[in-house]
């Protein structure tokens, strides 16, 4: 009898759990939506998305917002890392996004409306579930394409002298790109529009290499040239950092994408026409370049295999005597980060 009374008095408790969970699902969905859409996650520096699969247990909370002060603006890098298959469903997400002891099942998705893509993680939806929909923006990456028009306009190639063939002769072919982190931080304070190489990927495309080998080619002075027989070799990409007036080489950048290839190749490498540098924010973060100038120096070498040899040495791409290419907020230099519309949906059951 005592046991019966005891069990009977437990029944409402059990039912209450069932009851409160249907309500709880919406609340948990809401909470998860807020955490993911309005919080940048923890740790913040280096941010959680930099943690590799081996250190993922140091993450304490997911969050896709770019900064605490700009809720609803998501970082592309964080979104990609969040949906990365190296996180286990449901355990990892439960621990760092859903929270609580109850073994919730859920489905989280981010649909990029402007980009037309979607990513999701979780189970197939049942009939009834707690739900929240958040409208967000995804901050796109900035990028630049440096081509022949730009080379000419900024005198990155020596095409002004056309009379004396020897003037074409430039022995060094070194192209340098400046990323002035102090200026990038000061000229745009709002994190939603800031170019922040330590948090967002930047892309630098250098194109038209083949067609600009002999930029000053003038048929009146030089009878013929054979561009296709010249091997353009990218010998190195060195990364320099200017700190307190001293310029020091920090590392080399070994993952350029050559001629539209889908896998990066370490220099030295033969280039036909173009180079893409996709620079991961982790590189800048590891170098601790928060406020210093970073120079990327690309060194090229030319080997002429033409028979007969081309009558001149190339005056190819070289800005050691002029100014480095500045990765800044000028729309003519750099395509600025765009905010794209997206919708985040969280379903919990």
């Amino acid at each position: 009898m005592l046991a019966f009374i005891w069990i009977a008095s437990m029944i409402p408790g059990i039912l209450l759990n069932l009851q409160s969970n249907t309500i709880d699902f919406d609340a948990v969905a809401y909470r998860t939506g807020v955490i993911l859409a309005e919080d940048p996650g923890w740790p913040s520096s280096p941010p959680w998305e930099f943690y590799g699969d081996n250190q993922k247990y140091e993450i304490s909370r997911f969050g896709m917002a770019i900064a605490k002060d700009s809720p609803g603006v998501l970082s592309q890098d964080k979104v990609n890392r969040f949906f990365c298959s190296s996180f286990m469903y449901p355990d990892d997400y439960q621990k760092w996004a859903i929270f609580g002891d109850y073994p919730y099942r859920f489905n989280i998705s981010v649909k990029d409306i402007d980009g037309g893509t979607g990513q999701s993680v979780g189970d197939v939806l049942p009939d009834r579930y707690g739900y929240i929909r958040r409208l967000v923006k995804i901050k796109g990456t900035s990028n630049t394409s440096i081509g022949s028009a730009y080379f000419v306009a900024h005198k990155y190639i020596n095409n002004t002298i056309t009379a004396i063939p020897s003037d074409f002769n430039v022995t060094r072919h070194e192209f340098s790109i400046l990323i002035n982190n102090t200026k990038l931080r000061e000229e745009q304070k709002s994190p939603a529009y800031q170019i922040d190489p330590t948090r967002d990927q930047i892309i630098i495309n250098i194109t038209d290499l083949r067609s600009t080998i002999f930029p000053g080619y003038n048929p009146g002075y030089i009878p013929s040239i054979d561009r296709s027989s010249v091997n353009i070799s990218l010998t190195s990409i060195k990364v320099y950092k200017l700190d307190g007036g001293t310029l020091s080489m920090v590392r080399t950048f070994d993952t350029p994408y050559i001629d539209g290839s889908s896998t990066p190749k370490a220099p030295p490498v033969i280039v036909q026409d173009n180079i893409s540098l996709i620079i991961n924010p982790r590189i800048f973060d590891i170098m601790q370049t928060g406020y210093s100038n970073v120079y990327l120096n690309l060194t090229f070498e030319m080997q002429d295999h033409a028979v007969p040899p081309n009558p001149l040495n190339s005056s190819f791409l070289n800005n050691t005597l002029t100014t480095p290419f500045d990765y800044n907020y000028h729309p003519a230099n750099v395509t600025q980060p765009q905010l794209r519309d997206a919708v985040m949906e969280v379903a919990v059951w």
């Binding site: 919406d26 809401y30 409208l135 745009q188 600025q336």
Partner: peptide, 29 residues
Amino acid sequence: PGDAHISDMQLEVLGSDALAMMDTPPNSS
């Protein structure tokens, strides 16, 4: 009554998100 509040909450979140997105310029220029 709790159920009614839930749909209110979802609607409110959606509405204020929509206004916030409309008040965000797409880029710095």
